[in-house]
């Protein structure tokens, strides 16, 4: 475990907790894309299939349970909670899941390290995670208003993967362990997707004005 990975995991943990706390306290999910949250629940499910078969460390297992638990409870809140669901903007959050899920699945079947069910599912989760934020970014552009917590949520999500890239670079040079190119590509694509959001986020923060994404 190196500092980059720990910082990345903590940033990731913080992002989901910020979101869960926001929804739980103000009982609203305004500006949050349910599609993205459902895609993340799918990412964690397909990524952590080995949670009960391969024990790596207590930290690893606990974090997996937290990510699974938080992503599913966020989906539950937006779908089922009698107050929160009213603030869900389903007319604007219209990104089709299968536009992302099908291509990632096909890609994972053809481009993977080992053609086994678990390995294909793991690769699928890497590809899907890279694009899962798209419905959220589309929603932010449509609604054109980003409340602070949502902006921080997306920023933290992008930052976590950028830290993971530093972790892969670090591990590449310090351990016989070498990062597989699929992980590199998916991680870089994911971080690049956030790049334009980062740009506008920093602009708004620097000029101390409300964050507006160009249409």
């Amino acid at each position: 475990m190196n500092i980059f990975r720990l910082a990345g995991d903590m940033t990731h943990l913080f992002s989901v907790l910020v979101l869960l706390l926001k929804i739980h306290t103000i009982k609203s999910c305004a500006g949050i894309s349910l599609k993205t949250q459902e895609l993340y629940a799918l990412v964690f499910t397909t990524r952590y299939l080995d949670i009960f078969t391969d024990f790596i460390s207590l930290y690893n297992t606990v974090m997996k349970l937290i990510f699974l638990g938080s992503s599913f409870s966020i989906v539950w809140y937006i779908r089922r909670h009698k107050i929160v669901r009213r603030s869900y903007d389903k007319d604007q959050d219209t990104f089709r899941h299968y536009f992302l899920v099908i291509p990632c699945l096909v890609l994972a079947v053809f481009i993977n390290h080992k053609f086994t069910f678990k390995e294909v599912m793991w690769t699928f989760s890497l590809y899907l995670e890279a694009v899962a934020i798209l419905p959220q970014l589309v929603l932010l552009q449509r609604t054109r208003n980003i409340d602070n917590l949502t902006g921080q949520y997306v920023f933290l999500l992008g930052a976590y993967r950028a830290l993971y890239i530093l972790n892969w670079i670090y591990r590449h040079f310090t351990e016989p362990h070498y990062v597989h190119w699929i992980t590199w590509i998916a991680g870089v694509v994911q971080t690049l997707l956030y790049a334009d959001f980062f740009y506008y986020y920093f602009q708004s923060w620097k000029n101390n004005e409300k964050l507006q994404l160009p249409a």
């Binding site: 990975r5 990731h12 391969d54 690893n60 990510f67 793991w122």
Partner: peptide, 10 residues
Amino acid sequence: DTKIDQKDEL
């Protein structure tokens, strides 16, 4: 066998 020890990551 190049065990993909990537799996120790989240």
